[in-house]
Amino acid sequence: MTDNATTDFVRGAQDIVSAGQRMDARGWVPATAGNISCRLPDGRIAITRSGCHKGFLSVEDVITVDLAGQPHQPQNKPSAETLLHCQVYRLLPNVGAVLHGHSVASTVLSMTEPANALTLEGYEVQKVFEGQSTHEACVQVPLFANDQDIARLAREVEPFFANMPAGYIIRGHGVYVWGRDMRAALARLEGLEFLLACVLERRNLGQ
C-alpha cells in the first residue's frame, strides 16, 4: 500500500469512527448493531468489521473490501451486510458514504406499517433529501422484508434505486442512507431519523 493510500485509509477510518460515535450517542446503533462505510479515493470500500460496537470504534475496527464485498486481507471479517453497502457504491458512483442504523422509530414503524413504503409529507426537514425543495412534496421511504440471505435482499432492493432520495428501511431491522461524503450521509440519516420519530410520535398521539 502506498503512503497516499495509507493516509486515505486512515482519514476514511477516522470518519467512520466519528460517525459511529455520533450514531451511538443518539441511540441508533445499540449493542453491535449497524454498520458504516465510505469509499476511498482508490476505489476501495472502508467498512466496519463484523461484531464491533459502533460507539467504541477505533481505526483498527475498520477494514477494506472491494465492490464485490471481498476483504483485501482474508483474515478480516466484514459485516454480513457489506453487500448492501457495495450495492449502493456500484449503482451510485457519486456516493462516498453509506450508513446503516437500528433506531427504535425505524424498527417499530417498519413492523407496523402495512404499506410498502412510509410516506413523509409536510415536514420542513424533508429538504435534507436530494431533489426535495419544499415541505409540500411527498417522500416515499420503501420498506423491504428482512432476509438473512443478503444477496437475495439486495436483488429485491435494486429496482428501487432510481427513486430513493431518503434511503430505505428493512422491516424490523433498520435504515440505509447514503451521501456524497460522510457529512452528507450523516445529515440525511439525522433528517430521516427525526422524521421517523415525528411519524411515530404522531401515531402514538392518534394523529
Rank of each mutant, 00 (worst) to 15 (best):
K127T: 15
G206C: 02
V17R: 14
N94C: 10
P78G: 06
T112C: 11
Q75A: 09
S133Y: 07
A145R: 13
T119E: 14
T7Q: 13
G20V: 04
V108A: 09
F160I: 04
V177S: 02
L40A: 09
D181T: 02
V157R: 03
P159L: 03
R180V: 13
Y89L: 06
L99I: 14
S110T: 00
A25M: 09
A31Q: 06
V108M: 08
K54C: 03
V175F: 06
G34E: 01
A115E: 15
E81F: 08
L195R: 01
Y123W: 15
N35P: 05
Q132S: 08
C138E: 15
G101P: 07
I63C: 11
G43M: 02
S79R: 09
E201M: 08
T64G: 08
A166K: 10
I36G: 03
N94E: 15
T82P: 06
I45T: 15
V65A: 06
V17K: 13
V177Q: 01
V98K: 07
T82L: 07
A13C: 03
L120G: 05
N163H: 13
L91W: 11
L40Y: 03
A154R: 10
H100N: 11
L205P: 00
V98N: 06
I16S: 12
L84W: 02
I169P: 06
D181C: 05
S58T: 15
L83D: 05
L192F: 13
Q207I: 12
E136H: 06
S37P: 10
I36R: 01
F161E: 05
S50K: 11
A185S: 07
A31D: 07
V62F: 10
G172H: 10
